[in-house]
C-alpha cells in the first residue's frame, strides 16, 4: 500500500455502505466544503445533507458518489470514518423511490406552509432536501 492512500468507511445503522481506499475525498461539512487528502490532521466535524465525492487510487478517472444524510466525519491516521443515519451509493439509489419521496415532501411542505407550522415546515424541508440530494447523486450514473 502506498503512503498516499487513505481508507474511507461510510457506516449506517443498516451496515457498512462503503469501504474502500481513496486518494481524494470532497465533502460538505457544516462549515463549508472540504477536500480531504491522505495524512491529513485529525479532525472531527459535522456533515451536511449532501454528496460525497471519492476518487479511488485504482482508477484515476472514476469518481464514486455517495449521498450522505448528515452525520459526523472523523479523520484520524488516514482513516476517514463517516457515521450517518443513512447513506447510499449512487448505484444503489432507488430513483423511483426518491422521486416519490420528493413528491410526498413537496406536498407535505405545501400543507405545512398553509397551516403555518414552523416545526413541521423545517422537518419537511429536511426530508425534501434528502430526496433532492438522493436524486442529484443518482444522476451521476
Amino acid at each position: 500500500m502506498s503512503e498516499n492512500v487513505m481508507t474511507l468507511q461510510v457506516i449506517t445503522p443498516a451496515g457498512v455502505v462503503y469501504d474502500h481506499h481513496a486518494n481524494y475525498i470532497t465533502a460538505r461539512t457544516t462549515n463549508g466544503e472540504i477536500g480531504i487528502l491522505p495524512n491529513m490532521i485529525s479532525t472531527i466535524t459535522g456533515l451536511e445533507i449532501d454528496e460525497l465525492k471519492v476518487s479511488r487510487p485504482d482508477d484515476e478517472t472514476h469518481v464514486d458518489y455517495i449521498a450522505v444524510n448528515g452525520g459526523i466525519i472523523e479523520i484520524k491516521d488516514s482513516l476517514v470514518t463517516i457515521v450517518a443515519d443513512s447513506a447510499e451509493r449512487n448505484r444503489d439509489i432507488d430513483v423511483s423511490r426518491a422521486e416519490r419521496a420528493k413528491i410526498r415532501a413537496e406536498k407535505a411542505l405545501e400543507v405545512a406552509k398553509a397551516e403555518k407550522k414552523s416545526d413541521e415546515i423545517k422537518r419537511v424541508e429536511v426530508a425534501l432536501h434528502r430526496a433532492l440530494n438522493r436524486l442529484n447523486v443518482s444522476s451521476h450514473n
Partner: peptide, 17 residues
C-alpha cells in the same frame, strides 16, 4: 492522545453527535 481539529467547535459537534 491524538488531539483533534474540531470544526466549528466541540459544543456544536456534541450537540449533533
Amino acid at each position: 492522545l491524538v488531539t483533534f481539529e474540531l470544526e466549528p467547535d466541540r459544543e456544536t459537534i456534541l450537540n449533533q453527535l
